[in-house]
Each structure stands twice: as structure tokens, then as C-alpha cells.
């Protein structure tokens, strides 16, 4: 499992993360919430092994994360960064198939099956014959999502522990595709035992789909737990600096519904 214990991280002189402890459990979704610049993306980059941790311990299956090679890591965790940029002319299938690169030469039939499955999960099947650059921003996002899904699902051993990390995956999606994306993540978490970490801005979407939430402020963890435990008016005001009401969701029991104040106090 991916396990962080009092993790700290600095970019240059600036400390961006302090004393973060978390575990990414197989089959569970952990949502990370916080204001702009709270350290969400830095947390994801550190957990992905992209930037080094400066304190605490970070282990994948009991072995220090930095002891893994780039290629080994790519077979255990997939990352969807914020706003990917691809300005060269590639077909949608070619982009999605890149998710299989860490696994060398997959048999063609297996690759085809996987591509069909992830395209369906990302609701991108109709896009499969298009050119990537001809797609809208939201469609491109879904294709990139399909690519990291493929990277997660192409692992060789069935029960191997794998992590999926998504940085604001719903940012450019319409409401239907936001729900569909989270539904897809929840589904492969359940079916394949994938551990997921999602950086999200929509508090209610996070409350609805994530098993656990972590609230970040200025690089530190304010609260961690189930949505009901974590989403309190006090915590939300600390994190976002905006008064909030929390009421029970009218349609879903056990899910809190957050209503933010409609204006900022001067």
C-alpha cells in the first residue's frame, strides 16, 4: 500500500507540505480538498514520486518510494495531471494506447480489449476514431482519463496493488461527465481493488463519491476522515475562508450537503 507518515515537502525555500500522514487503501477513494495554493498538487506530485519528500516517510508496499525506478513506478501508479497539453497530431486510440507503454508489448488482442473497456468507462467510445486535436477541452480530458485508466488496468498481476491519482479530473467536464468520471473511478476501485487519490474542487461531488476526505490548508492537514466527519462548517470555513452550512442530503442518506455562503464578508 502507499503509506505516508508525517510527510514534508519544500519547493525551493517555500515549505509546501508539512506533517501529512495518509494511507491509500485498495478499493477506496481518498478525496483531497483545499483552497488554491493549499498544496494539493504538491501532495499529489510527492505521492507520485515526482518531487522528493523532504521529511517523514513515504512507502509503497513497505519499500521507500524513491527506491523504485521510474519504470517500476509507472507499472504501479498512474497519474492524470492538471490540464495536460498535447499539441501534436495523434489519433485518440494512439493517445489512449500510451497507457500500456509501461508494460512493453502487450498482446494485440488484450490491448484492444483494454482500450475498448477504458473508452467505455470514460464515455469516449464515440471519440475513438477522431483526432485528438480536433476534440473539445472536455473531450480531450476524457481521452486522457481513458489513458490513465488503461495504465491502471494493464498491470500484469490481477491482485497487484495499484494507485490511480487524478488532479482535478472534473475541471473541464460537464455535470454528466463529472458524475460519470467519478462513477468510473469508483467502479474500477470496487472491481479491481485500485486505490485512488483525487484532488477535487467540488465539495459535494467529493462528499458523494469519496470514501475518505482530507482537507488541506497552507500545506497542512486540517481534518481527515469520512465526509460526514470532515465536512463541518468550522473546517470548511478554515479551509476556504467562506462560511458554509452543512445539511443532510435530501436524496442520499449519510451524505452531507454543503451550501457555501453566497457572498464573501468584507
Amino acid at each position: 500500500m502507499l503509506h505516508a507518515e508525517s510527510l514534508a515537502c519544500a519547493r525551493g525555500e517555500r515549505v509546501v507540505l508539512r506533517d501529512i500522514s495518509l494511507t491509500l487503501t485498495p478499493g477506496k477513494l481518498l478525496g483531497v480538498l483545499g483552497a488554491n495554493g493549499a498544496g494539493k498538487t504538491s501532495l499529489l506530485a510527492t505521492l507520485a514520486g515526482e518531487i522528493p519528500a523532504h521529511g517523514g516517510s513515504l512507502q509503497l508496499d513497505g519499500r521507500a518510494l524513491h527506491a523504485y525506478s521510474t519504470a517500476e513506478l509507472a507499472r504501479r501508479r498512474a497519474v492524470l495531471p492538471q490540464s495536460p497539453s498535447l499539441s501534436f497530431d495523434l489519433g485518440v486510440r494512439e493517445v489512449v494506447a500510451m497507457g500500456a507503454y509501461p508494460f512493453g508489448n502487450l498482446p494485440a488482442s488484450r490491448l484492444e480489449t483494454l482500450i475498448a473497456r477504458v473508452l467505455a468507462l470514460a464515455d469516449a467510445t464515440v471519440l475513438s476514431t477522431r483526432r485528438y486535436l480536433a476534440l473539445s477541452g472536455g473531450e480531450q480530458q476524457r481521452v486522457q482519463f481513458a489513458r490513465v485508466l488503461l495504465q491502471t488496468l494493464a498491470a500484469r498481476a490481477e491482485d497487484e496493488y495499484r494507485v490511480l491519482m487524478l488532479d482535478e479530473p472534473t475541471a473541464s467536464l460537464d455535470p454528466r461527465h463529472q458524475v460519470q468520471l467519478l462513477q468510473g473511478v469508483a467502479r474500477i476501485a470496487r472491481e479491481e481493488g485500485v486505490a485512488s487519490l483525487l484532488v477535487l474542487h467540488d465539495v459535494n461531488l467529493a462528499a458523494q463519491w469519496c470514501d475518505r476526505l482530507m482537507l488541506l490548508t497552507r500545506g497542512a492537514c486540517v481534518a481527515q476522515g469520512t465526509p460526514r466527519e470532515v465536512l463541518t462548517p468550522e473546517n470548511l470555513e478554515t479551509v476556504y475562508g467562506l462560511p458554509a452550512q452543512v445539511i443532510p442530503h435530501p436524496a442520499q442518506a449519510d451524505t452531507p450537503l454543503v451550501l457555501f455562503a453566497s457572498r464573501v464578508e468584507a
Partner: peptide, 9 residues
């Protein structure tokens, strides 16, 4: 970053 995530140092 994406290339790195895909396993290319």
C-alpha cells in the same frame, strides 16, 4: 511530467 508518469526517466 506525463512521460515520467509513463515510466520514462
Amino acid at each position: 511530467r506525463e512521460a515520467q508518469h509513463l515510466g520514462f526517466a
